[in-house]
């Protein structure tokens, strides 16, 4: 049933499409670097010359931020929330219903294309240089690299399911500002993208640990710097896998409801 070639073509075309917007690549990269500098300086100031805080060395913390910014570059290259909302409002998505393909999957594969383009043209070159010239703590074990890449990929899928589902909520809402606020708040704080979960006050840390967002940044980052190690890596990835299934079901539910609404109410 799964038409691999078709979805692969979506990825390919979307890769080409990204190549059209070269300026976009540079501006994204620019803002990525600015955020990196910002969070780098904030954490340098917070450590205030100390070698270690909360059992985590300054070097590891800086690595955490650099890796986190890399991942946010990756995640940011997919179809953003506002664009999904826009496509719902203009009816573009409703019209895709009359095509013989699955809409959520089609967007996922298109995202693979654009993310891949952005990664090889901008992100990887930049971050390889950073890894060389900055004093970061890189894992020695290739298995850790592998676990990190896998966790980062699962994190990407979790983020995709949540962002797409949130975007599709536009079908049911007139005013979508609230959804956006919740989404970006969760993405920046609860995911641990700029503050690792171990620095959270106890109640917030346990709150975040019951949510899927930690799987997007915190888990891969913490694996990378060794905060999550040994068998914990497996349980953390297990948690991620659990969330990817849950968020995927959530996305499917929203999509089914949305397409049901389109076909009954005309969108």
């Amino acid at each position: 049933m799964f038409n691999y070639r078709l979805y692969w073509t979506f990825a390919k075309k979307s890769f080409l499409r990204s190549a059209v917007y070269r300026f976009d690549v540079w501006s994204r990269l620019g803002s990525n670097v600015i955020f990196l500098l910002m969070w780098g300086s904030i954490w340098t100031a917070l450590y205030a010359g100390r070698e270690e805080a909360g059992g985590v060395s300054f070097q590891a913390m800086l690595t955490y931020i650099v890796v986190s910014q890399f991942l946010s570059g990756v995640n940011g290259a997919g179809t953003p929330l506002w664009e999904i909302q826009e496509k719902v409002r203009t009816g573009d998505i409703s019209l895709e219903l009359m095509r013989p393909f699955d809409v959520p999957l089609r967007y996922l594969f298109a995202d693979f294309g654009s993310v891949f383009f952005y990664m090889i043209t901008a992100l990887l070159p930049l971050y390889i240089i950073l890894f060389f010239f900055m004093d970061l703590s890189l894992p020695n074990d290739p298995l850790i690299w592998l676990a990190f890449s896998f966790a980062a990929f699962i994190g990407f899928l979790i983020r995709y399911c949540i962002e797409m589902a949130f975007g599709l909520l536009t079908f049911f809402l007139v005013e979508t500002g609230g959804v956006e606020d919740i989404f970006y708040f969760a993405m920046s704080l609860l995911s641990g993208s700029v503050i690792p979960l171990w620095f959270f006050p106890g109640w917030l840390a346990s709150f975040a640990s019951y949510l899927p967002f930690q799987g997007i940044y915190y888990i891969p980052n913490a694996i990378f710097i060794g905060e999550i190690a040994g068998y914990q890596i497996l349980t953390s990835i297990g948690v991620q896998l659990f969330w990817v299934v849950v968020t995927y079901i959530f996305l499917r539910l929203v999509w089914n409801k949305a397409s049901q609404k389109v076909v009954v109410q005309g969108g």
Partner: peptide, 17 residues
């Protein structure tokens, strides 16, 4: 597909159908 040369959309439709 708005941003791509026209031929790319045709090729995409070829795969879709």
């Amino acid at each position: 597909w708005w941003d791509l040369p026209t031929i790319e959309s045709f090729e995409l439709l070829k795969e879709i159908y």
